[in-house]
Structure formats: C-alpha cells, structure tokens
Simulated assay, not measured.
Amino acid sequence: MTTPTILLLPGWQNSDPSHWQSRWEAVHGDRRVEQHDWMRPLRGDWSARLEEEVLSATEPVVLVAHSLGCILVAAWTAHSRHTDKVRAAFLVAPGDLEREDLRELIPGWAPIVRQPLPFRALMIAANDDPYCSAERSRGMARDWGARYFDAGRGGHLNGESGLGDWLQGRQLLNDLLKEE
C-alpha cells in the first residue's frame, strides 16, 4: 500500500509550536498547508490553497484538520473535482462557525457545509470544547458521514490541552488508515 501524503489543516491563527499538529509536522514529517492569511481567513482563498496542495501531491492524500480546518474540508469537498485523491479525513475539534460570537470573529464561513464527505472520515471532539458543543460536533460528524470519537474532557484539543505529541490521536489516525 502506498504511503499517503498527510496534509495538516490548522485552524484560525495557525497551530502554535505546542499544538499536536506542529508536533506531528516535526516528528512525522506531515505537511502543513500554509494559508496566505491566518488572521483573516477567507473560505475561497483557503479552499484554493487546499486544492493546490491536493493537486501537487503525488500520493493519495489524508487530510488532518483541526478546528476551522474541519470546516474547510467540508467546504472544499463541496466544490472540488479532485476529492478522489483523498483517502481519508481526520477531523479534530471543529469550530461552530454558525455560533454568533464565532461568526463575528471569522466571517464568511457560515453556513457550514453539511453534506456527506466522499471519503472515510473520523471526527474527534471533546465534550467540553469552548468553541463547539458536543451536540453540534456530533451533528456535523453525522452530516459528514464521519465516525465520532468522544475525547472526553480536553477543551479544544489544541496546544492548551497539553496533548504533546498526542499519541492517542496518532493511533486513531493509523487505525483509520488501516480501514479499507
């Protein structure tokens, strides 16, 4: 089986050095999709960057998204004609961009695309995420056709959550990739 290209899709403001995505980039050599503007994310611009990265990959792609990156996966999938290059998506702690406070901070991302993803997907979310209730993240997983993993208490599953290299997350990703 071909080793996939793992594309890291950070959320708003990027992933800081203590974030598990940054650790995975350093430890496993996963490739971060660099966005043009991390502070004022535009859905069209972010989708175009993801499209460029997917098209440039020579191997099948695995999307590893955090927060706004999860919403990006759904938005990109709705418009791309290259979703067949994606083997799976690993979606962690989606942000609820339909919530009024977040919609004001990050305009242009609501409504969240809620159609089934055309590839296997696993969503991991904590039940105490300040940016998305467990009910909302479960609803997104259901609408996207993603399996759901309840991470218990862990906040936004970011650098502040103290996950370090997040070995449990990497094992969940490896398990997802073993599925066919």
Results as ranks from 00 to 15, higher is better:
residue 63 L to T: 01
residue 168 Q to Y: 00
residue 10 P to C: 01
residue 169 G to Y: 04
residue 77 T to R: 12
residue 70 C to S: 06
residue 146 A to P: 13
residue 139 G to T: 01
residue 50 L to V: 05
residue 28 H to Q: 15
residue 14 N to G: 15
residue 71 I to L: 10
residue 4 P to D: 09
residue 72 L to P: 09
residue 10 P to R: 10
residue 76 W to M: 03
residue 59 E to I: 05
residue 51 E to R: 15
residue 156 H to M: 08
residue 164 G to W: 03
residue 174 N to I: 00
residue 148 Y to K: 12
residue 93 A to Q: 10
residue 54 V to L: 10
residue 136 R to V: 09
residue 56 S to G: 13
residue 155 G to P: 12
residue 2 T to C: 03
residue 71 I to M: 01
residue 112 I to G: 06
residue 23 R to N: 07
residue 85 K to M: 03
residue 84 D to M: 02
residue 139 G to L: 08
residue 107 P to G: 09
residue 95 G to E: 07
residue 102 L to S: 02
residue 135 E to I: 05
residue 82 H to P: 08
residue 87 R to K: 13
residue 23 R to F: 01
residue 125 A to I: 02
residue 170 R to D: 07
residue 24 W to V: 01
residue 136 R to D: 03
residue 58 T to L: 09
residue 108 G to A: 07
residue 16 D to N: 15
residue 83 T to K: 01
residue 158 N to H: 04
residue 119 F to A: 10
residue 113 V to N: 08
residue 116 P to L: 13
residue 4 P to Y: 02
residue 2 T to H: 09
residue 135 E to G: 12
residue 172 L to I: 08
residue 164 G to K: 10
residue 111 P to M: 08
residue 3 T to R: 14
residue 34 E to T: 14
residue 71 I to D: 03
residue 154 G to L: 03
residue 21 Q to C: 07
residue 114 R to M: 13
residue 162 G to D: 03
residue 155 G to V: 02
residue 125 A to V: 04
residue 46 W to C: 03
residue 39 M to H: 14
residue 23 R to D: 02
residue 96 D to C: 00
residue 137 S to Q: 05
residue 98 E to R: 12
residue 167 L to I: 09
residue 48 A to H: 11
residue 28 H to R: 15
residue 88 A to P: 12
residue 156 H to S: 15
residue 101 D to C: 07
residue 175 D to R: 14
